[in-house]
Design a protein around this nucleic acid. Structure first.
Length: 279
DNA sequence: AATTGTACCTGTCAGC
DNA sequence: TGCTGACAGGTACAAT
């Protein structure tokens, strides 16, 4: 489901709604979602219950919950994971797939719902969890001001990979997925199969600007809801209706009217305009 | 070093 | 009305 704008929207809402709350109980009916360490449901309950949610942060597409007692819990929603804050009075949620629930001290329930059960949880001492390879090896944040053109060029230029795949590689740059890589490449008029080393400096400058601008625009619109994404009160994001090229196969290009094409790159669909994004 | 296929999961939709 | 296959905001891992 979520890429950077969706995850950031969730994190901002969580900070407003659950920051400072104490976890008083949990329910877990899919223990396989606990990726690290190898613990059972009861041990997970011991680790979380009684702790305060001090703050929530985003890194790439990961959601980091800093809990009291120097505990860090990280959740990755993968394709269909979502959070819902529900009232204790009506525990029956319309989210049929809430496999993990946190009962809070204000009698609300923070539920993690995940239809496809691909979402994962990591928990432990802060330093211990932050040292796990998936987090340690993340690339820079695209919206961070320190990611300027010269750094971007260093990340991209000496690799020999298809630019679409590089943009989605979380160890190169963190937070971009299938929607926003398509959008940024359309904005920059770059063909998605172009090898990274063949891009000119001008193209890379345009691409970096496109990445930042499309992510900021989607953030303002609270993300994209193609199907599953919802914010923590169940509302959809508004970027999807305004998308430029993603999932518009056969429709006219918004710039030149040529029919948008879809191809497969590394098992994922890529959408582009064969006229504007020439190679 | 980069690519390809497979695995993890469930739900939806088009086509037969 | 079934059935089947493709596809869906993601990532890890093994094989080539």
């Amino acid at each position: 489901m979520p890429e950077l704008p969706e995850v950031q929207t969730i994190v901002d809402d969580l900070n407003r709604q659950v920051r400072g709350r104490r976890i008083v109980g949990i329910a877990l009916d899919w223990p396989k979602m606990i990726q690290y360490p190898a613990i059972n449901k009861r041990q997970f309950a011991v680790l979380t219950c009684g702790r305060k949610i001090l703050r929530v942060e985003r890194r790439g597409k990961y959601i980091k919950f800093y809990l009291s007692g120097n505990i860090l819990m990280i959740i990755h929603p993968k394709m269909t994971g979502r959070f819902l804050l529900e009232n204790g009075e009506k525990p029956e949620t319309n989210y049929r797939h809430s496999h993990l629930k946190f009962y809070l001290d204000n009698s609300k329930i923070l539920a993690f719902s995940d239809v496809r059960k691909l979402g994962k949880v990591w928990i432990g001492k802060i330093a211990e969890v932050e040292n796990l390879a998936n987090f340690k090896n993340l690339g820079p944040e695209p919206l961070n001001k320190s990611l300027n053109l010269s750094k971007f060029i260093k990340l991209i230029q000496f690799k020999k990979r298809k630019i679409k795949q590089l943009l989605m590689d979380q160890t190169v740059i963190a937070g971009i997925g299938n929607i926003y890589s398509d959008e940024a490449l359309w904005l920059s008029k770059i063909y998605p199969l172009t090898l990274s080393q063949d891009l000119t400096k001008i193209q890379l400058k345009t691409l970096l600007r496109a990445i930042k601008s499309v992510l900021k625009k989607s953030l303002k619109l609270r993300g994209s809801s193609m199907r599953d994404y919802r914010d923590i009160v169940g509302n959809q994001g508004n970027y999807y209706e305004q998308r430029l090229v993603y999932h518009r196969e056969g429709e006219p290009c918004l710039r030149c009217g040529t029919k948008i094409r879809r191809i497969k790159i590394g098992g994922r669909s890529a959408h582009y305009c064969p006229q504007c994004q020439y190679h």
